[in-house]
């Protein structure tokens, strides 16, 4: 899901100009909200449009809208939309947990949003449920692959979920 706020002049034919490039780029409009109560000093109406669209096409969409004279006020460029939880078993803390997290976070397309660790005893393997969010399914898959590489280096067992579509 991708949300776009554009400012449209209050006259006929404005909305259709916005929708045309969305449709052309294969986007699916989920919702349109006219925010008439938030009318701008230049008498334009902010319109919030929620769409499902291939994330790679977003820059092209924004450019197309701007080219047709529509003011794009804001759009959420990087929004974490897909999440997966994995279980790690091994010496998670002693193998530098912050390095593990940093390497996921520094991808720019995924980050660790939750970590729940259970440490039974010193020198015994610990368990962590790690939750990763990414900007799309493909990026989530890449982040999970990266996590698996890191864990292989650190001799940590990765238990992936079964119910995710990417697995």
């Amino acid at each position: 899901m991708f949300t776009l706020i554009v400012e449209l002049k209050d006259k006929p034919g404005q909305l259709i100009k916005t929708l045309e490039p969305i449709s052309r780029l294969g986007g699916n409009v989920i919702g349109i909200v006219h925010k008439r109560d938030k009318i701008t000093p230049l008498k334009k109406i902010p319109v919030e449009i929620s769409i499902e669209i291939d994330e790679n096409k977003v820059p092209e969409l924004v450019d197309a809208l701007k080219a047709s004279g529509i003011t794009v006020r804001e759009y959420n460029e990087v929004r974490l939309v897909t999440t997966s939880s994995l279980l790690l078993v091994g010496h998670i803390v002693h193998t530098d947990i912050s390095d593990t997290i940093n390497r996921i976070d520094s991808t720019g397309y995924a980050e660790v949003i939750d970590l729940h660790i259970n440490m039974p005893q010193l020198n015994e393997p610990s368990t962590a449920l790690i939750t990763i969010s990414a900007t799309g399914k493909e990026n989530l898959r890449k982040a999970v692959e990266l996590l698996k590489v890191i864990c292989k280096e650190k001799k940590i067992l990765v238990i992936e979920p079964i119910n995710e579509e990417f697995s």
């Binding site: 279980l87 078993v89 091994g90 729940h116 259970n118 039974p120 015994e124 393997p125 610990s126 368990t127 962590a128 449920l129 067992l157 238990i159």
Partner: peptide
């Protein structure tokens, strides 16, 4: 390599 604690965390 699976530990009993792994089940604890998973089941939560």
């Amino acid at each position: 390599e699976i530990t009993p604690e792994a089940f604890d965390v998973a089941m939560e």
